[in-house]
Amino acid sequence: MENVKDKDLQYIIGNLLRWGVWTSLGIAFIGGLIYLSRHGQEVVYYPKFVETDRDMLTILKEMLQGIGAGRGRDIILLGIMLLFATPISRVLFSLVGFILEKDRLYVCITLIVLMIIFISVRGGLG
């Protein structure tokens, strides 16, 4: 019985990963085309790296405003965000799977992993 559930979970997670990657890259590609059509003829300018310190909410808010304004770079960023969400949702699906299997040990282990990811989303305690 446990084995059957493991198989289902494998199937769901396999598809989740595949669709997650292709959807995010598709969006990033569309964003890239828009970016290039607007800025393709400009001269490349990436100044020396300057560290920023923006929290995730600000980044998301600015990204949504940028997408509203049709900015290609923000559409690419949306694709990147979805790519980040892919492995995280894989962990969430595993959590559901372990809960259904009543595997308490692995429910705990999965929660620890999620907590660490949450800490890094919050800027890594910094």
Partner: peptide, 18 residues
């Protein structure tokens, strides 16, 4: 886990990443 930290520090440039 590390990429989200990088994003907030400005390491991730959409124009290069795409």
């Amino acid at each position: 886990a590390s990429a989200v930290v990088y994003l907030q520090r400005g390491y991730i440039q959409p124009g290069i990443c795409m």
